[in-house]
Computed example of a mutant assay.
Amino acid sequence: MQHFHANEHPHRRYNPLLGEWILVSPHRAKRPWQGQNETLLEETKPEYDPNCYLCAGNIRANGIQNEHYTDCFVFENDFSALLKDEVTFDKAPSELFQLKPERGINKVICFSPKHHLTLPEMAVDEIEKVVQVWKAQYLELGSLDYINYVQIFENKGSIMGCSNPHPHGQIWAQSSLPTQIEKTQKNLSIYYQKHKTSLLADYLKEELKQQQRIVIENTHFVALVPFWAIWPYETLIISKRHFGSIIAMTAEETTAFAEIIKSLTTKYDNLFETSFPYSSGIHQAPTDRIAHPEWHFHMHFYPPLLRSASIKKFMVGYEMLGEAQRDLSPEQSAQILRELPTIHYKTKNL
């Protein structure tokens, strides 16, 4: 009988944040690939695009003109998924047909006036300004009495549903806790009540001891491939100090956070020498006027690329009907990312 090896044998891993399992099949990474594998031509974008509705000074679809901004620019989404209006509502009579109105605000944050940039191509001090805007928006939106959660996120790349290549992210602030947050809230609370410590603080201590899945570490943050990662090159940025939300960051932590975002996203771009697509987002304490000592600030990156700039991995088949599954082990993907340079491939010959 063979002895179990995590990089050779199929197994399941537990995600303590969501209380869910994932199937890992590392032996399948050896199989030959005969699927989609097109060559990508990377488009050269101008610094300013007169047809872009996010560029400084341009007119958006609703006829409003953007400010002639020089760093970050924030505005309410012209096509919001959530609305501020309060409505009257009669509760649905059946438990099988439940619904309830949801109030909220959607905002867009342009990271830079330069149309051709992405986060890894921006300077650390420019990313720091983005973090400062995230702080201000979390505080402003979270102070509204009907907003109980502020979700800050970025969709990068058209395959992640991004409708405009201009560097930007979004904020969806709403009256309910979103499903993933509710699951995380529950599991963080259970752990905190049992151990009187932060789940992610304890998890990070063990990761730093093992050093198997660490990608980048600086004074205040660690970027790693989580033990339970689903996406091929999924990563998690965790603060070393236990605090619940972005507004608790010190000036030094803010700079360190900007630095690790730049380094990690640069590694992503360098992996296949392409503008690496992903969905990323910050998970932090709700704004429901309740103390949340169980929450520990962290940021998720979910990229779909698997073997090249053109081969993507999305949840299909068994993953939609059974449970999440991955072929490359988290330890293998962490090693690949760890060994990549933090100098962007576009600048290596300059």
Score class of each variant (00 low, 15 high):
His292Asn: 07
Ser80Thr: 10
Val150Thr: 09
Tyr191Gly: 00
Leu306Ile: 02
Glu47Trp: 00
Lys267Met: 11
His220Pro: 02
Trp172Asn: 05
Phe79Cys: 07
Tyr14Cys: 11
Pro303Arg: 04
His298Thr: 07
Pro304Asp: 01
Phe301Ala: 02
Ile171Val: 12
Asn15Leu: 11
Ser158His: 15
Met320Gln: 08
Ile59Gly: 08
Ala81Arg: 01
Ile282Met: 15
Gly57Asp: 03
Val215Pro: 04
Leu204Tyr: 05
Phe153His: 10
Gln332His: 12
Glu331Trp: 11
Lys312Cys: 10
Arg28Gln: 07
Pro167Arg: 01
Pro167Tyr: 01
Pro46Thr: 01
Leu141Phe: 03
Ala223Met: 07
Glu8Tyr: 04
Leu224Asn: 08
Pro232Thr: 07
Leu328Ser: 03
Trp228His: 04
Pro167Gly: 01
Ala291Gln: 15
Leu337Pro: 14
Gln284Ile: 12
His283Thr: 15
Gly142Ile: 14
Pro232Phe: 06
Glu102Leu: 13
Tyr14Gln: 08
Gly317His: 02
Val87Ser: 15
Pro167Phe: 00
Lys348Leu: 05
Gln211Pro: 08
Phe314Glu: 08
Asn77Thr: 00
Phe272Ala: 00
Ser176Phe: 14
Gly19Val: 15
Thr274Pro: 00
Asp78Ser: 09
Leu188Thr: 00
Val108Tyr: 03
Gln2Asp: 10
Ser280Cys: 12
Gln212Ala: 13
His166Cys: 02
Leu328Asn: 05
Ser25Trp: 04
Thr287Tyr: 07
Leu264Asp: 11
Leu23Ser: 10
Cys162Gly: 06
Lys267His: 06
Gln332Asn: 11
Lys186Leu: 12
Tyr233Asn: 04
Glu126Asn: 04
Gln284Asp: 14
Gly317Ala: 05
Tyr48Trp: 06
Pro232Arg: 05
Lys313Glu: 12
Gly157Ile: 11
Glu319Gly: 02
Glu234Trp: 06
Gln137Leu: 09
His166Gly: 01
Lys30Met: 02
Glu47Leu: 07
Ile147Thr: 11
Leu141Trp: 07
Phe79Lys: 07
Leu18Thr: 15
Pro293Glu: 06
Leu139Cys: 06
Val316Leu: 09
Ala248Gln: 12
Ser189Thr: 11
Trp172Tyr: 11
Val225Asn: 05
His292Asp: 02
Ala251Glu: 15
Thr255Asn: 07
Lys45Leu: 14
Met160Phe: 06
Phe221Val: 04
Asp327Ser: 03
Ser275Pro: 00
Tyr203Pro: 02
Leu18Asp: 12
Gln2Trp: 04
Ile159Phe: 08
